[in-house]
Amino acid sequence: MAENTVKLHYNVDPDDFTVAGEASGAVKKVLKQLGFSPDVIRRVAVAMYECEINMVIHAQGGHIDVEITPEKIRMIHTDQGPGIKDIDKAMQEGFSTADEKVRELGFGAGMGHPNMKRYTDDLKITTEIGKGTVVDMTVLVK
């Protein structure tokens, strides 16, 4: 039901590590105010943060749409970045295409996609080389 959906929209700035995590932080606060359980809040926050940071590192930013209903939280991350060459590889722990500069900052440990999968109930990645990527994640409220 549309009236039972809280919709939130965030823009993610490119190349700015200092603000990465702002969207997931804001969503975390909203979920607490709505009274969701600690477990749900944590899963959403971690999955969303990983995705947000990926958008900053690989995709020159993008935008995030969050839909909250009493049953589930859906997060759609859209970017116009380079796309993911090999999704199966990206899902492997420790696999990363982040460059040296990014790794020096402590990112690029290859845990992004595995964590997204681990913390969500549904993960759909649609990607096209040179066009961009849409990461659509859902956390169910059980």
Binding site: N4, V6, V30, Q33, L34, G35, I68, P70
Partner: peptide, 9 residues
């Protein structure tokens, strides 16, 4: 929760 969501909007 439904009322909470309405208030959130």
């Amino acid at each position: 929760i439904n009322e909470a969501m309405r208030k959130m909007q």
